[in-house]
Amino acid sequence: MDMRPVSSLLFALLEQQPDAERALTWLRQQLDLYRNQPTNAVFYRVFTAMPRFTGKAPVVVSDEMATALAEARPGFVLVDWTMDRLARVWWLLQYPSADREVYQRGITELFRAAEMNELVALYSALPVLEYPEDWRFQATEGVRNNIADVQAAIMLHNPYPAEQLDEAAWNQLVMKAFFIGKDVTQIQGLWARNNPRLQAILHDFAAERRAAGREVPEHLPKLMSDTIE
């Protein structure tokens, strides 16, 4: 998929935010610098330093922008994003992708040294990264993560898992979302990817909860008993 339109839209969205002038000036400068000096050191520094220049104000997305983004990349929605997250995802789209191996290695290094807000941005970016099938294992690592917002970034409002994860990994994502008390209605593809194995797992989990005298999570009974086409 050609991600250049998404990149342009994300930058336009940055431009639409109030008081973004300082951030925009800095981002333009860094992009020029990176184009003249395309090293990982420069790319990583900009990625990490982002909140110092963009701040962390909530991003306001107009209806027109939401529609345009969904047309450019189906399922790509920005719910409760902050300026640093938006700018980081835009910045990731500036990483050269011509060489698949170099691309995968370069982005993976960012995952390996990431702090929690960087991880949120990285997992949010999975739907717009090149070579989508190369990030399947990384997506399962996001589900395994222990930090609430990192889990949310991969599980909720993200089209990538439903598109790319195999059945076992998908079932693990849904089951873990129930287990840690996420709002599962925010999982993209929840109903479309329902399957008998998942239903069996949910069935056992519900029984375990009842045996322990604990509540069964909302929406679980419906997903467990929904007719699968």
């Binding site: 110092r52 962390k56 929690m116 222990n146 930090i147 609430a148 287990f179 840690i180 509540e215």
Partner: peptide, 29 residues
Amino acid sequence: GQISLSDFDQPLTIDQSQRFNGSSVLRGG
């Protein structure tokens, strides 16, 4: 540039990135 006294006046929970829900420390609910 990463720490200031005024940080402490704001409750931590207003920071988007630091919600209390879900983790292995505080398992679901």
